[in-house]
């Protein structure tokens, strides 16, 4: 099977690149497009740090063959901030001390974005379930759960004042 040209909508921008057969979405984002926020952790879908949104759904990019999502809208951590302005999830992660080494952070933020997109007022149990596929070895998870709940609160507040 020859390499093929794959087209994706990445963070609102149409991107085309040549992908080898079976290349993962993660490898294409990192190596072809230079978007290195999504990390390669376990490379078997168990740690969650490669999470990106595919048409709004959180997916482990290390398990997705890129040709199977050709034409899809991909959102990565690079597309979350607006210019230099961090969004509610990012700023809540900073304010709530929800990072230490930072390796899990890109995946944690993307599953949080997906959660808040579909449920602006999640319960603590909802947040725990949303991040249950993401491994963190530093924080003990608690600050991450608190940060996502805080981000939800800020986003609801902003929606009211707008």
């Amino acid at each position: 099977m020859p390499s093929q040209i794959v087209s994706l909508d990445v963070n609102g921008e149409r991107r085309e690149f040549i992908a080898a057969p079976g290349a993962t979405l993660l490898a294409c984002l990192r190596e072809s497009l230079g978007l290195t926020a999504a990390k390669r952790g376990c490379a078997q879908g168990a740690c969650g740090t490669c999470t990106v949104l595919v048409d709004g759904r959180p997916e482990a990019a290390c398990l997705v063959a890129v040709e199977t999502v050709a034409g899809s809208a991909i959102r990565t951590l690079e597309g979350v901030a607006t210019g230099g302005d961090l969004d509610e999830v990012q700023s809540a992660f900073i304010d709530c001390f929800a990072t230490q080494c930072g390796f899990c952070t890109p995946g944690m933020i993307m599953v949080a974005e997906a959660l808040l997109d579909r449920d602006p007022d999640p319960s603590e149990a909802d947040v725990i379930e949303a991040i249950s596929g993401n491994v963190c070895r530093c924080t003990g998870y608690r600050p991450i759960v608190i940060a996502i709940l805080e981000a939800a609160r800020r986003r609801r507040e902003r929606a009211v004042t707008r």
């Binding site: 952790g41 379930e129 759960v145």
Partner: peptide, 17 residues
């Protein structure tokens, strides 16, 4: 040998500290 088989507590296994 990997995160799939190595047992660790997840975010639901948190004691109150």
């Amino acid at each position: 040998r990997d995160f799939a088989g190595y047992l660790m507590p997840g975010p639901a296994d948190l004691p109150v500290q």
